[in-house]
Every structure is written in structure tokens, then in C-alpha cells.
């Protein structure tokens, strides 16, 4: 559904993205993560057709997104929700439906459906008078007004309270389950973990890791074991009367068990922990 090949983007001599390649399959939720300035937003803007690549190629639903017609099948949600504040939510959405050639009847039905799902009731309110959360909901509704196959969401949860954030993230998952292809960026990795099928991690314009979450975990650190012993062993830290050692594989666990026995103690607890994306991210960022 989305193909990005050797994408490179420079702004006035500064390189924002230096040669990314990735593909997104239909129905997939694809996460782009990384710290500020990693090139996430630029990547998403190129996919949305807002920015022309300096080099490389971007195809969305078989077309070039910088061509107006290709954007017909795209729904873009920018990081901030800039609305035309003098318009009401309803007329704002109708305006965009019109731009996408959606007939008025179909548009109204779709707008009300989406707003129902988003639980937004004040539809005749000027968007300028709305709270941040409500504005974000209007912006999300706007991205769906043309019933697009591809959604490009840049930090969909940015600046929202936890409740609304959860709500929006769940909503994205639902949309993907309905068959939409979603690319979304975030720096709150918790959300990425919850909804993304595959992710790329970007740092300073480069993709530094990619794959399903399991693949990335395997590659970067895998599982961790925390072994609690009654006596001190090498590299252990004292905690609550006992000693804890963190090791990376079962061999390590055996080593700790051996040492504890030699020192006249024993293992009282072994806990496993899967690495979070955050850990992986830190790991990757340190490596590069």
C-alpha cells in the first residue's frame, strides 16, 4: 500500500531524512518512532504528499502522493490540529468533504457517524471555542471524511490528556482492524507497543532498526532475567535484605546459581522481563 524507496530529504543544506526504505502492507499499523529531530515528521509528510523528496521515491496506493489525485485515498493528521477557527465543526468537516468530492449526503452521514464514534456532540460550535481534546477529535474526523485507505497520523495523541489519548489510540487500532493502512509516529512508545504491527526506529535521519516488535526485541537485548540470591555474588546489588543480579540468558542464571551455592547461599527468585520498546530504543540510540 505504501512504498518508500531510498527517501532522502534535505532542507536548505540540512539533511532531515537520509535514505529510508520501507513498505507498509494493507491493514497494517506501522509505527515510526524516534527522538525529536529524528526525521519522523518529515517521513510522514513525504508519505502524505506535502513534501517533495530530494531523492528517492514514494508511492501510495500505486501513485505519487505529490500528485493531487493520489491524495484522494489519503487521510493525514498533522502533529498539531490547526483548524479554521471561525468555522463550526460541522461546516469545517463539510468543507473538506467537498474538497475530496464527497457528495453532501454521503459526507453528512459519514461525518455524523465518525463524530458519534468519537463521542463529540457539540457539532455546531465554532472550532475556535473548543477544548484541545475536542479539536483533536475534529481533526481525526477530518482525516476520515473521505473514507481513505491510507491514514498518516503524526503523533495522534500529542498534547492530549491520558483519557483522550487512550481513546484515540484505541480508535486507530479499530480503524486498522477495519482494513485501513495506518502509518503513525509517536514518541510515547507505550502506544506504539499497543497498536503497531511493525515499527521502524529512526535516529538523526536514519532508520536504525526495523521489523515486528518481537524481531526487534530479539535483535536488541531480548529477555532479561533478574536473579535474587541470599548472599552476595559478583555484580549484584543489595536490595531489601537480598541481592539481585541481572543477566541476559539462562547461562547467566546458571552462573549466578553456582556462585551463590559456592558462597553458601541460594537462589530465592528468578524473574523474567521482556524489554520494552523504550529499552530497545535507548539501546539503539546508544549504539549509533
Amino acid at each position: 500500500m505504501i512504498e518508500v524507496r531510498d527517501l532522502r530529504k534535505e532542507y536548505a543544506g540540512h539533511v532531515a531524512v537520509s535514505g529510508s526504505t520501507f513498505e507498509v502492507e494493507p491493514g497494517e499499523v506501522f509505527g515510526v518512532v524516534g527522538p525529536n529531530g529524528a526525521g519522523k515528521t518529515t517521513t510522514l509528510k513525504t508519505v502524505a504528499g506535502l513534501v517533495e523528496p530530494t531523492e528517492g521515491e514514494v508511492r501510495v496506493a500505486g501513485g505519487d502522493p505529490t500528485e493531487a489525485e493520489t491524495r484522494r485515498s489519503l487521510g493525514y493528521l498533522p502533529e498539531e490540529s490547526p483548524l479554521y477557527e471561525e468555522m463550526t465543526a460541522l461546516s469545517y468537516l463539510r468543507f473538506f468533504a467537498d474538497l475530496y468530492d464527497v457528495p453532501r449526503g454521503v459526507a453528512d452521514e459519514r461525518i455524523h457517524d465518525t463524530l458519534d464514534r468519537l463521542e463529540l456532540d457539540r457539532r455546531e460550535t465554532r472550532t475556535g471555542d473548543m477544548s484541545k481534546g475536542m479539536k483533536r477529535k475534529v481533526a481525526v474526523a477530518r482525516s476520515l471524511v473521505n473514507d481513505p485507505d491510507v491514514l498518516v497520523y503524526d503523533e495522534p495523541a500529542s498534547g492530549l490528556d491520558p483519557l483522550t489519548t487512550n481513546y484515540v489510540v484505541e480508535f486507530v487500532r479499530e480503524l486498522a482492524d477495519e482494513g485501513k493502512t495506518v502509518v503513525f509516529s509517536a514518541h510515547n512508545l507505550y502506544h506504539v507497543e499497543r497498536v503497531c504491527d511493525r515499527v521502524v526506529i529512526m535516529n538523526e535521519g536514519d532508520i536504525v532498526a526495523r521489523g515486528t516488535l518481537e524481531e526487534i526485541r530479539d535483535e536488541h537485548g531480548g529477555v532479561e532475567y533478574t536473579v535474587e540470591t541470599t548472599v552476595e555474588v559478583e555484580g549484584a546489588t543489595e536490595e531489601g535484605g537480598g541481592y539481585r543480579t541481572t543477566v541476559e540468558d539462562m547461562d547467566g542464571v546458571e552462573r549466578v546459581r553456582e556462585e551463590a551455592r559456592e558462597n553458601g547461599g541460594e537462589v530465592v527468585d528468578i524473574r523474567t522481563r521482556e524489554p520494552s520498546l523504550e529499552d530497545i530504543f535507548l539501546d539503539v540510540a546508544e549504539a549509533t
Partner: peptide
């Protein structure tokens, strides 16, 4: 101001 025009640019009009 506030990047308001970005969304019309993202729609299928040039």
C-alpha cells in the same frame, strides 16, 4: 499562522 493551511495542501487539490 499555526500551519492552518497544511490540511488543504494535503487534500486532492493542487
Amino acid at each position: 499562522i499555526d500551519r492552518r493551511g497544511v490540511l488543504t495542501l494535503a487534500s486532492p487539490v493542487s
